[in-house]
Nucleic acid binder design. Structure first.
Length: 432
RNA sequence: UCCGCGGUAGCUCAAUGGCAGAGCACGUGACUGUUAAUCACGGGGUUGUAGGUUCGAGCCCUACCCGCGGAGCCA
């Protein structure tokens, strides 16, 4: 048996004799010559099986395989201009591992429900493969960004005793003798505790929202990365966010161009993501809406169609800051120059992908924060530990949260968020 | 929760109230350069469920089930 190699490393083995292991992506036959497309998770390579070269037994064996049968093929690697990957194999031997039953996902069109029901198989398709590789690159670059800047990863709990923004959107479960527990909808409050301990932290994990949303932008379970930095004000926070986004997009362009091409993504849009990102106030955003003929009343939150209109004015993500405090969370600090505004910032992705980042400078004054809790009718006991952060050496601090799946959706240019995560959880989907 | 669209072969979809169809997939055969290969032949159906109108319903009506998209909410 020749050396076992992966398809992504084939360029190092040109002219060499190797073995590939994988699954049959497709088979084309022309009488005395067969073309086997082997998929191994790193790429797809075509093996050319010629009857007069391998003999009847191996030739017929190759023809027995069905789509997604697992097998090994050995032979010589040759540069081939016609091959999508640049190389193909002149096969000398084929070894079947397992013949697949009739595979439901053919290289033709399928409907959404059909594919979603077979998500565990759908992941094998080249398009899903490309998305998962880009998702991984995004996550890798996120960790690289923070790890390279002195941040400490702080894992927040998933079971929480109370809501951080009200209970209506929380998944609830029984927790032994301690009553109800909720699945976290954000690790932020714990991130703030971490920032007071370690200065610069990031929380990275799954979050849960029981919103009955049924759109292409919503999951009930999604991943969020949430940096929190002591002594950062709102401007520092925006500086961090734009440097962060630039780093992620640059990394994907550098390391996953092949996958972006497989998705037919227009990379010009991504190449434009360079600092500085435009920063506009909520007031300016409202002006833009009015100029574009959108009826919008100051004080309302921006809806998805409003965000699209605003983002279409720019060629890169846009930061909208200083929203009306009435529509923002209790922990956001008010603007000292205008009590009606919160020191909040949302980053809107281009092309109508909407909000991918939401953040703020946090309220650091004990008395003000206590007042906000009361205004929002939140139970003070549940937040006593959080108030401690203001009792014992409170400092200005800021942070933001970025939704991984919306970011993947935008960078990949996808129609629907369900393709951005291996096994999506949505209001009407819990399987597979 | 509300609004809109849809459900016909394994898949994607056609079918003026009048014989249930095509492409792909699958099976058999042909083919030494195929790229979602091509060509020939073949097997494949309780038209989402229940009722109603009609000489006759995939098509019209009622209810329900399921799916998709959007709004609100949010990342």
């Amino acid at each position: 048996m020749a050396t076992k190699v992966y398809i992504e490393d084939l360029s190092k083995h040109a002219g060499g004799s190797v073995t590939l292991q994988g699954w049959l992506y497709n088979l084309r036959s022309s009488g005395k010559i067969k073309f086997l497309l082997l998929r191994d998770g790193t790429g797809i390579c075509q093996g050319v099986v010629v009857k007069s070269v391998v003999g009847d037994e191996i030739f017929n064996r190759a023809g027995e395989m069905t789509q997604e049968s697992s097998f090994k093929m050995s032979g010589t690697i040759r540069a081939e201009q016609r091959a999508p990957g640049g190389y193909e194999m002149d096969v000398t031997n084929v070894e079947i591992i397992s013949i697949a039953k009739e595979y439901p996902i053919t290289p033709k069109e399928h409907g959404v429900e059909f594919l979603a029901d077979r998500r565990h198989l759908w992941l094998r398709s080249s398009r899903q493969h490309a998305i998962m590789r880009i998702r991984h690159e995004i996550i890798r670059s996120i960790r690289e960004f923070f790890d390279g800047r002195g941040f400490t990863l702080l894992d927040a709990p998933i079971f929480t005793p109370a809501a951080c923004e009200g209970t209506s959107t929380l998944f609830e479960t029984e927790y032994f003798d301690l009553g109800k527990a909720y699945l976290t909808q954000s690790g932020q409050l714990y991130g703030e505790a971490g920032a007071m301990a370690l200065g610069k932290v990031y929380v990275f994990g799954p979050t849960f929202r029981a919103e009955k949303s049924k759109t292409r932008r919503h999951l009930t379970e999604f991943w969020m990365v949430e940096p929190e930095v002591a002594f950062n004000d709102l401007n520092d926070n925006m500086d961090l966010a734009e440097e962060f986004l630039e780093h992620i997009v640059t990394s994907v362009l550098k390391n996953r161009m092949q996958e972006l091409n497989a998705l037919e993504r227009n990379v010009k849009v991504l190449e434009a993501v360079k600092r500085p990102l435009p920063r506009i106030s909520y007031d300016q955003a409202v002006e833009i809406l009015h100029k574009n003929g959108v009826e919008f009343e100051w004080g309302n939150d921006l809806g998805a169609p409003d965000e699209t209109v605003i983002s279409q004015q720019f060629d890169r993500p846009v930061m909208v800051h200083r929203y009306p405090s009435a529509i923002k969370a209790f922990y956001m600090k008010r603007d000292p120059n205008n009590d009606k505004l919160a020191l909040a910032v949302d980053v809107l992705a281009p092309e109508g992908y909407g909000e991918i980042i939401g953040g703020s400078q946090r309220e650091d004054d004990y008395d003000v924060l206590l007042e906000r809790l009361k205004e929002h009718n939140l139970p003070q006991e549940a937040f006593d530990w959080y108030l401690d952060l203001r009792r014992f050496g409170s400092v200005p601090h800021s942070g933001f949260g970025m939704g991984i799946e919306r970011t993947v959706s935008w960078i990949c240019g996808l129609e629907h968020i369900r393709e951005t995560i291996p096994f999506p959880r949505m209001i009407y989907r819990l399987t597979p």
